[in-house]
């Protein structure tokens, strides 16, 4: 079985995210890292390989992004992927969710995976939706927010929390599964794996190489125009207490509660 894991490069969580006022797009300069939610998808692929219920021949990390995104691929490889595929093309910049999912599905179609794994959300875009878009293009069954996944009689048995409690769903291969962050504790890469990551095969493809229709990607090819960023109505800031002397802190909390007749 071949597993493709979708990974994305995102601004480091410690860096303030902002919109570039000149382009109206997310400012993606500054420190970058592998989207933390994607490490759970790589770990899920590793656990399938190690679990033995199915033979995993290859784990391929796939990303769409600018040149700098190779770092996310190196990180993915250090966490266990065997090789990676980088879709990089200036024409893709500014793609919306639909266009991004379309472009990624073209990259995935080239690989013909039995299973596509991805994270529950990207730390910057927070759309929760790339999995469902990719699945429709690839014509594969799909679930998102999966927190338990086992191979059972040649299919995947998945569990997730939905609107009325926990659902268990049987999904046949090939499939697209977005994993929730409760599915596992990703391992730390070994120093050797980090050092070796750059030596693993990395293929870079442009949009034209994989048959992406240029009129359907980038800002021009996107069906939704986002802009006019405005600030939400200001909310009065709450009071903050830094806990230095806990006895004193607690006294202040009690006084605050008492004032509002909450005790």
């Amino acid at each position: 079985m071949k597993i493709c894991v979708l990974v994305k490069e995102v601004p480091d969580a410690a860096v303030e995210k902002r919109i570039d006022p000149s382009t109206g797009r997310m400012d993606r300069s500054g420190e970058k890292n592998l989207n933390p939610y994607d490490t759970h998808a790589i770990e899920a692929a590793m656990q399938l390989r190690e679990g033995g219920a199915v033979q995993v021949d290859e784990i391929v990390a796939v990303t769409m992004g600018p040149e700098s995104a190779v770092r996310a691929l190196h990180k993915a490889v250090s966490l266990g992927a065997d090789r990676s595929l980088h879709l990089s093309d200036g024409s893709l910049a500014g793609s919306d969710v639909g266009a991004t999912g379309y472009a990624l599905s073209k990259a995935l179609a080239k690989e013909q995976p039995d299973l596509v794994l991805l994270g529950q959300q990207s730390d910057d875009g927070e759309c929760y939706t790339i999995g469902a878009v990719v699945a429709d293009y690839l014509q594969m069954p799909s679930l998102t927010q999966v927190i338990k996944m086992d191979v059972d009689s040649g299919a995947l048995r998945c569990e997730r929390q939905a609107e009325y409690g926990y659902d268990t769903v049987q999904v046949e291969f090939p499939a697209v599964i977005a994993v929730g962050d409760a599915i596992n504790e990703p391992r730390y890469p070994s120093l050797k794996a980090i050092m070796g990551a750059k030596k693993k095969p990395l293929e870079t493809v442009a949009a034209g190489d994989i048959g992406i229709d240029a009129s359907r990607v980038g800002a021009e090819g996107s069906q939704v125009q986002c802009g006019d960023f405005k600030a939400p109505p200001a909310k009065a800031a709450g009071q903050i207490i830094e806990d230095e002397d806990t006895g004193e802190t607690v006294e202040k909390i009690i006084a605050w509660l008492d004032e509002r007749k909450l005790i």
């Binding site: 919306d96 639909g98 939706t129 293009y137 939905a162 069906q223």
Partner: peptide
């Protein structure tokens, strides 16, 4: 909103080549 709305809306966007906004 809710989980299914996200999945249906996104998949429908792909199917109909439509724009989608969530949240």
């Amino acid at each position: 909103g809710g989980l299914l709305g996200f999945e249906i809306g996104a998949g429908l966007a792909a199917r109909q080549k439509a724009g989608v906004t969530m949240e």
